[in-house]
Computed example of a mutant assay.
Amino acid sequence: MMKKYAPFFYFAACFFLMNSCAKPFDAPPANDTLTLNANTTIRQLKLLHVKNNFERITDDLIVSGIVIANDQSGNWYKQIIIQDETGGITVRMDGNNLFNNYPVGRKIAVKAKGLYLGDYGGVIQLGAGIDNSDPNNPSLIPLPTSLFDKYVLKGSLNNQVIPRLVNINTLSANLQDTLQSTLIQLADVEFAVNELDKTYADAVGKQAANLTIKNCSGNSIILRTSGYADFASNKIPAGNGNLVAVFAIFGTTKQLLIRDTSDVHFQNARCGNSTVSKISIAAVRNSYKGTAYTYQEDKFINGIVISDATAGNISENEVILQEDSNMPGILLQLNTGHGFKMGDSVTVQLNQAMLTKENNIL
């Protein structure tokens, strides 16, 4: 049984880089095992919720799922998202660095008895109670740190959730859309052309940003990024490709959230082979004719970082990219230090960037 509660209601200073990297973290203990089996599904649990209400769960319900998103990059705050074969749900948890104990890929079980269901903008959540400090806008209270181990049991690590390949038109703003809070993939999509000079969010003012993702048929959806995300200041990529994200809604607005920029694989030519197009690093090198050259074309290159500034064998404001192991790479000169690591995939927008040779290095 459950009780319902109605509410009271940003080579040279001109380069723009996009980083696709996975941030390191301390490995959590791997010896935790689940001692409880799920007796209901996430889908069944979510069906107990009515929009704008709060429901206290009084039955001994247990759901199990795999963590698909957490607070590691800063794009989520005090919450993790878990997914089973039937759906996904947000679990509000009043702690920082949750990713240390609840990394993506960890299986967990949630003992739901005594917890509450609610929703934020239509995204169904689990929490510890109801905050009525604002009678006109009640909200879920996150689970206190002291109760984490009582309600959230840690299981095996490195489990995989394969993103479901969907079309933009498949997604809806329905409260009970089974894709809500799950990992999805969109193919052949890109940022709208008017967005291409932007960053993912406002890292200085710590303001979130909504950017438009479009497919080649003109259908669109919002990509929302927190100003606190560690990739907020990164320039968005100009190409086309695949996007992995967690699907959410806010009111009637369908939106996507990425874990970090490794979820964005925009390395192909844009829809209709528009003027913003990819060229090879080899082509960039071949275009050098002995004098400095500033690009005016809307082109971009992709490459993998093969340098390591932390080893001290390269300046902290330099990065070496290589597109193919059989071809020479190119050196990027930045205006500041950076966080790029060996193996990161990087996209460089060339418009207004200067190609030159220093110490016989392009």
Rank of each mutant, 00 (worst) to 15 (best):
D131I: 05
D84E: 12
P163C: 04
P135D: 11
D134C: 06
N137W: 11
D94E: 15
N97L: 14
K107R: 15
P142L: 03
Q160D: 10
T170K: 00
T86P: 10
S172G: 03
D149C: 04
M93S: 09
D131V: 05
L115P: 07
G105M: 09
G105C: 11
N97Y: 15
Y116L: 06
S181G: 01
L147W: 07
S172K: 05
L117G: 05
F148E: 12
P135I: 13
S146V: 04
L143R: 10
T178N: 10
N137V: 01
P135M: 12
G114D: 11
L140C: 08
N158V: 02
T145M: 09
I141P: 00
Q176L: 15
P163K: 09
F99P: 05
E85Q: 11
I130C: 02
L165G: 09
P163T: 11
L179K: 09
I141A: 04
S146L: 07
D149F: 08
V152M: 04
G127T: 07
A109Q: 12
T170W: 02
I162V: 15
T90P: 04
D84S: 07
Y116P: 00
N169C: 03
P103R: 08
I184H: 00
I168F: 02
T145H: 05
L175G: 00
L140F: 09
I89D: 06
Q180L: 14
I168K: 00
L157F: 03
D177E: 03
V91K: 08
V123W: 02
A109M: 08
D134W: 06
N169K: 13
G105T: 11
N169H: 05
N101Q: 12
I89L: 07
V91L: 15
D131Q: 05
A128R: 10
N169S: 14
T86D: 11
N132W: 12
V110D: 08
T182H: 06
M93C: 14
K150E: 15
G105Q: 10
L165W: 00
Q125H: 11
K150W: 03
L157I: 08
E85H: 07
I162N: 14
S181F: 02
K113R: 14
V123N: 14
G121E: 04
V110S: 09
K154N: 01
S156M: 07
Q180Y: 00
N169W: 02
V152C: 10
R92L: 15
V110K: 05
S172A: 03
N167T: 14
D149P: 01
F99C: 08
I124T: 13
N158P: 03
G129R: 08
S181H: 07
N136I: 10
Y151T: 09
L179N: 15
L157T: 07
V152P: 02
N169G: 09
M93A: 14
L171H: 01
L98K: 11
A173W: 06
A128C: 05
L140A: 08
L98Q: 10
